[in-house]
Structure formats: C-alpha cells, structure tokens
Design a protein around this nucleic acid. Sequence first.
DNA 1: TTAATTAATCAAAAAATTTTGATTTAAGTA
DNA 2: TACTTAAATCAAAATTTTTTGATTAATTAA
Lengths: 107, 107
Amino acid sequence: MMEEIQLQDISIDSFFEKYELKFKAIADKKRLQIMNILTQKGAMCVCDLAPLVDMAQSKLSYHLKILLEANIITKETRGTWSYYELNQEELNHLLSHELCCVFKPFC
Amino acid sequence: MMEEIQLQDISIDSFFEKYELKFKAIADKKRLQIMNILTQKGAMCVCDLAPLVDMAQSKLSYHLKILLEANIITKETRGTWSYYELNQEELNHLLSHELCCVFKPFC
DNA sequence: TTAATTAATCAAAAAATTTTGATTTAAGTA
DNA sequence: TACTTAAATCAAAATTTTTTGATTAATTAA
C-alpha cells in the first residue's frame, strides 16, 4: 500500500518533470524564433539557420540541442550537415490549436 | 518603409516575448504542481496551498507571482487572504486539449 | 594530400532564476 | 489594546541557464 502511493507519487512527479523539460525548451524568445522559422521553411541546416536568427554557430547549436532533447525538433545528419525540423506531432500534443501557423507547421 | 519593417520586427519580437513569459511561467515542476492542484481544488489561499505543495510561504508567494504575471492564474483578495485560481481561458489559448484535466480546469 | 567547411563540445564567464530567512503591512482575534 | 495570522516583499546566497570563444572531429572540396 505504502509502495503503491509512492509509485503514484514518483510517476506524477516524473510527469511534471517531463512537461517542465518541454515547456522550458519553448520558454525562450530565441528558441521560439527558431521554431517560427522552421515552421515557415521546413528542415534547415545549422549554417543556413545561423544568419537568419543572427546567432553564432555554437550558440545556435546549444539552443537546438535544448529543443532536440525535449523532442520539439528532430535532427537528420547528411554528410557534415545537420538538418533540423519541427516535430509536428509533439507540438500538437503540447500546444493549443491557436498557436498553429506560428510555432507548429501545416496547421 | 524602413519604419514599417522596424515596426513589424518590434511586434513579432514582442509576440515572442509574450510567449516566452507565459511558457517560462509553466516551465517549472513546482508551478505545474500548483496548477494541477488548482485544477482539482479550484480557488485556494496561500496558507492552504502551502502544505499541499510542501513549500514555505515566501517561496510559494514567489511562484504564484510568476504565474499571476503571466496571467496563468488570477488573484482575489478577501481580508488578509489571497485566493488564487487558474485562468481557464488563458490556458485554453495556450495548451493543447490533451493537457486538460491535468493543467486546465473543467475540460 | 591539403585546406576549408560543418557542427558538436568544452570550460570559463556572465546573466538569470530560485531559495532562504527576515521584515513589513494589513487584517483578524482575544 | 495587544497578540496572532496571512501574505507580500526584500536582500543575500545558491543554483541554473546562457553566452563566449576555442578546440575537436568529421566530411567535403581543391
């Protein structure tokens, strides 16, 4: 019984942690701008994205990693290039329909 | 023309800032827990909420202020008590329908 | 092969957020 | 009136996040 309650607590706790991670990822002006650009342009590599968001490469890679680890975007490597794309499915689970067109693709 | 472009930039910039503020407010395990409790219990005062989230009063007041400033919750003062309640309308604009029952009331 | 490009990672510095404990203000209670 | 309770605010400390610039590894191009 004790264990049951504890398990419940642990699971609700990790549930909140999961959403903390996701909301934290999108809780940033620059990362929202990145999402907005990916909404409009589809998949992009770091070197093409960098000038659009006016960011140094290492800084952009840092922000992309945050979004990637929250599953907000996906990554596909081709040669030396890394192509990043919005994860539409994930965003649909997360955001209101209203936020389509701005932070979600094809809505 | 220059001005038009600048105005556009400023407005899209403040648009991202607005959502940064809101997502930042909900991008926290403890604040999500607060929202979850308010979802279940409706309006609550700080002194009743504090033991439920196992937080000192000043800490809880700090987190409530973050949510209040993002318009995620509302506040009504009665005597010495402050009653906080989820802002259902705001959350509907922000979050997916899926996140109802967890972070949004009456869905 | 050599040089250049792409992007990830690292450590240190800078900046922002959160926690803590105390103080303050206001309102209720004996 | 004096005492207690509720909650906001404050400053300092602690913690977390972000930025910066350099380095590294892998791939492409000359």
